[in-house]
Amino acid sequence: MRGTYLRFYVQEGKTHHHLLAYEWLLEQAKKMGLHGGSAFKAAAGFGRHGMLHEDHFFELAGKLPVMVEFVVSDEEADRFLTFLQAEELPLFYLRMPAEFGTIKGPGN
């Protein structure tokens, strides 16, 4: 199948509607019927302000980047991005064309 790869970058401690932003993104995607998503915490990273955040500094807890990823149809991507725009949650995202599918193993 062909569709869209969406990746969002949020700070791990950032909240939206009293939830961590990455948890909120996953919950909203699930409510909208998207078929899966994952969140990954970075070991280190920097954003547009150029400040480096690394996992081993206690005082930087909650400031590491978290990537939230979805592989969806083009229509689902459009619908999700339109919804997020209305939420006014500041997000940096990546949208790329994707080819995806499943590989069946023994017994499937």
Rank of each mutant, 00 (worst) to 15 (best):
M1Q: 10
Y5G: 03
Y5C: 06
Y5M: 09
L6V: 07
F8E: 01
V10C: 00
Q11K: 13
K14W: 05
K14Y: 00
H16L: 01
H17E: 15
H18V: 01
A21V: 03
A21Q: 01
Y22C: 01
Y22R: 07
L25A: 05
L26V: 07
K31A: 15
G33S: 06
H35M: 10
G36C: 06
G36E: 03
G37L: 04
G37R: 00
S38I: 14
A42R: 14
A42E: 11
A42S: 15
A42F: 08
G45N: 13
G47C: 09
H49C: 12
M51T: 14
M51A: 12
L52R: 15
H53S: 04
E54F: 07
H56T: 04
H56N: 14
F57Y: 12
F57M: 05
F57Q: 11
F58P: 11
F58A: 09
L60D: 10
A61V: 12
L64M: 03
L64V: 07
E69S: 10
V71K: 07
D74Q: 15
D74A: 10
E75P: 05
E75L: 15
E76P: 06
A77R: 02
R79I: 01
F80V: 02
F80D: 00
L81S: 02
L81W: 02
L81T: 05
L84G: 01
Q85V: 03
A86W: 07
E87H: 05
E88F: 05
L89T: 02
L91I: 02
Y93G: 01
L94N: 02
R95L: 01
R95I: 00
F100P: 03
T102D: 02
G105W: 08
G105R: 13
P106R: 13
